[in-house]
Simulated assay, not measured.
Amino acid sequence: MIATSVMQFETPPLTDPSVGRGRRLLWPAVAATAATGYAVVAHVLDPNQAGNYPTCPWLLLTGTFCPGCGTLRATHALTEGNVLEALQRNPLTVAAFVLMALGFARWTRRQWRGERRMTAAPAWLLYGLFWLIMAFWVARNIPGWTWLSPA
């Protein structure tokens, strides 16, 4: 007769009670401060006025728009409450801000509760995001499609 032993693994706790909430919320606070600083600078230094910011290096070298062209102007428009203008400047930026705000809220909630870290995004999502950005890059440079240009 062969004796078998069953190994039992203990699952790690979902929370770490040894770490206080203040310490767990340090990085969300740092991220919120940085995002607020970016928004304040984009609001105060109007990117629509020449000389406040340098020209996009990609636009300067190639004469075509990169996926990020118009991001500062879209941010400036959002800080003034003008969502339609922000969508005209860079619709991908507006969508990214919404997704980042939702992700930040989820991250902060998990940190507040002391839950384990979130797992990385699945590969299909990352590849999909990559190809969406590439398609946007090509589409905004198609002659005649001025509705996607940041100008």
Results as ranks from 00 to 15, higher is better:
1 M>N: 14
4 T>D: 15
5 S>I: 15
5 S>Y: 12
6 V>C: 09
7 M>A: 15
7 M>S: 13
10 E>S: 12
10 E>G: 10
11 T>P: 13
12 P>M: 13
14 L>T: 15
15 T>G: 10
20 G>I: 15
23 R>F: 07
29 A>N: 12
30 V>M: 09
32 A>K: 00
38 Y>H: 10
38 Y>R: 06
41 V>H: 10
42 A>T: 06
42 A>S: 07
43 H>I: 08
45 L>G: 08
47 P>M: 06
49 Q>T: 13
49 Q>H: 12
50 A>I: 05
53 Y>F: 14
56 C>I: 02
58 W>F: 14
61 L>P: 08
62 T>Q: 03
65 F>A: 10
67 P>C: 03
68 G>Q: 09
74 A>K: 02
75 T>D: 06
77 A>E: 13
78 L>A: 04
78 L>F: 09
81 G>C: 00
83 V>I: 09
83 V>D: 04
86 A>P: 03
89 R>K: 08
91 P>M: 09
93 T>I: 04
95 A>I: 02
100 M>W: 03
100 M>I: 12
101 A>G: 04
104 F>S: 05
104 F>L: 04
109 R>N: 05
109 R>L: 06
112 W>M: 03
112 W>L: 05
115 E>Y: 14
118 M>N: 12
118 M>D: 14
118 M>S: 12
119 T>P: 03
121 A>D: 04
123 A>M: 11
125 L>C: 00
128 G>L: 05
131 W>Y: 12
131 W>I: 00
132 L>F: 00
134 M>R: 00
135 A>D: 01
138 V>C: 03
139 A>C: 00
141 N>T: 00
142 I>A: 03
147 W>C: 05
150 P>H: 01
150 P>G: 02
